[in-house]
């Protein structure tokens, strides 16, 4: 049963890593604004779509 000591250490370490990740996310301001990023993430797609559609046009011309 001494394996439990190892498991205990591992599980606590894992949990601490997650706690650290949580604290980092709060500190970097990820919880301050929970709306704008959801809009922002879509902007790049629009540009890419435009580029790809431009490419399509070029291809069609060729």
């Amino acid at each position: 049963m001494s394996i439990i000591y190892l498991l205990l250490g591992c599980s606590l370490l894992m949990a601490l890593v997650f706690l650290g990740a949580f604290i980092w996310s709060v500190r970097s301001g990820q919880l301050d604004d929970d709306y704008t990023p959801s809009v922002r993430i879509l902007f790049d797609d629009i540009k890419k779509k435009d580029e790809s559609s431009n490419e399509k046009v070029k291809n069609e011309k060729n």
Partner: peptide, 14 residues
């Protein structure tokens, strides 16, 4: 910005 509560909840939850 007051983030103290977020830390407190995080620590307590953990």
């Amino acid at each position: 910005v007051n983030r103290k509560l977020s830390y407190q909840i995080g620590v307590a939850g953990f």
